[in-house]
Amino acid sequence: MVEQMILASECDVANEVICAPADVKELFELPTIFYIGDIAITRTIILIFLAAFIVIALLYFGLRKGSVIPSKFQAVVESLVQFVRKDVAEDIIGPEGVRYAPYLTAMFLFLLVGNLFEITPLINFPITSRMAIPAFLAIVTWLIFVIVGFYKNGFSYFLDIVWPKSVPIGLRWLVGLIELFSVFLLRPLTLAVRLFANLVAGHLMLTLLLGSGAIFIWNFADAGAKSLVGVAWFAFGLGIYLFEIVVAVLQAYIFTLLSAVYIQSSVHPEH
């Protein structure tokens, strides 16, 4: 909604083929709603808390009764939680996965809701397209697997990475260097950027296509035959919309899955 208003104010339907803001940041830096002291509470911050609230409400209303014979809603919430607990945490990390299951479950549900905000009507903004959340969760995952790695294996955790014994001695230093770089730097970076970039791209596509489509169709008097282009943009945007549902779920899953894989590699580094 907000983005469309911004687009409309700047879009010259007579001369442009697609409406894009002069500065792409306008699509991601949302307006301040109110202030607490000097702190500007933006729409993004409200959405971040809304996501947390939705996750908690989902869990609370889904599991509150704890019926032996579950209602449909309870069965859905249960299977969602058990999916991360069993199929991700315990299947990948092993029996010790139980300890990391609360983190992974909270992460999956928070990211899922945050991602799905992208295609939620009236919200239309994935909070994961702001680097804060992917970066924070990637750093937490990084901290967990590094600390667990050293805690479980002592200094040999680090030595096995930089001096891998399974590699021929001539290449060992090179592989060690690559591994050092990959484990401690690339893992958290790619984890965060993968999620962030996917949601940024999705949000851009949706706002530009649906926004432009809507503006061209709405202002058909000025746009003339170009409103047909608007119809095409809008139809294309709807296709992307469906695709983004899959992306939102998949990216939450991938982030959680990779976090579990990284933790597993520290719990059992020989694998």
């Binding site: 830096e29 702190i39 500007a40 933006t42 993004t44 911050i45 971040i48 808390f49 996501a51 947390a52 996750v55 908690i56 869990l59 609370y60 599991l63 939680v81 607990r85 299951a101 609360p102 983190y103 479950t105 909270a106 992460m107 549900l109 928070f110 909070i127 702001r130 680097m131 804060a132 959340i133 970066a135 924070f136 969760l137």
Partner: peptide, 26 residues
Amino acid sequence: LPESYELVAGIIAFGIVFFFVWKWAF
């Protein structure tokens, strides 16, 4: 780059979710 207020909001919000999952949902 992460925006600092959003980072703080994210940490608090995720912390609440994590705590709820850990202490109540499980």
